[in-house]
């Protein structure tokens, strides 16, 4: 249904427009003045100054894979691949060989690629992971010289992610 927005009735002074223009100009020049006098707090000068030490624990940097002491946490359930809005994740699942110590887990990612050109650092993969295997760590300056270099493979993801303990007890013997 069409809805007509009521237009405000303007006084003559407002209709002249010029006072408002002058007021606007005054505001902008005030900001300029304050900047010039150094009264405004400005943004950080990035490569020289860094925010790293102030980063909160929940900071959402690059997604990484973490391992437990003796096993990969990811079981290649592909939920992160499913949830990832820009489809940055690509997983090839595989079966853990019977001889392995973590045989009980049965499944692991043969390949795990995150395309960091696509990733939007939304953190949904971390949120959806039933195994607490994927975490957004604090790395934010992800650069590369080629597209291929920007695809983080499993090795790189574990390198960035490191080891975590506890949290998931499901694969321990009794449970």
């Amino acid at each position: 249904m069409a809805y007509t927005v009521p237009r405000p009735k303007l006084t003559f002074r407002e209709k002249l427009y010029l006072p408002a223009v002058a007021a606007g100009l005054a505001i902008t020049i005030k900001h300029l003045k304050n900047m010039l006098l150094g009264r405004t707090k400005v943004v950080m000068q990035y490569p020289e100054e860094k925010w790293d030490s102030h980063m909160p624990p929940h900071y959402r940097g690059a997604p990484t894979l973490v391992r437990d002491d003796d096993r990969e946490r990811c079981v290649a359930c592909q939920l992160c691949e499913f949830i990832c809005p820009p489809r940055a994740i690509k997983i090839t699942p595989g079966e853990i060989p019977s001889a392995s110590k973590s045989e009980k887990v049965e499944k692991f990612p043969l390949e795990f690629d995150i395309d960091m050109i696509r990733c939007i650092y939304c953190g949904l993969c971390e949120e959806v992971c039933p195994e607490q295997a994927i975490f957004l760590r604090k790395d934010y300056a992800i650069t590369g010289l080629s597209r291929a270099e920007m695809v983080h493979n499993k090795k790189k993801l574990y390198e960035l992610g490191g080891t975590m303990h506890g949290l998931v007890n499901k694969w321990n013997e009794k449970k």
Binding site: T28, I29, H31, L32, N34, M35, L36, V42, V43, Q45
Partner: peptide
């Protein structure tokens, strides 16, 4: 530069 200063940037 001026636009930046007006908008509190550098």
């Amino acid at each position: 530069r001026i636009s930046a200063l007006i908008q509190d940037r550098l």
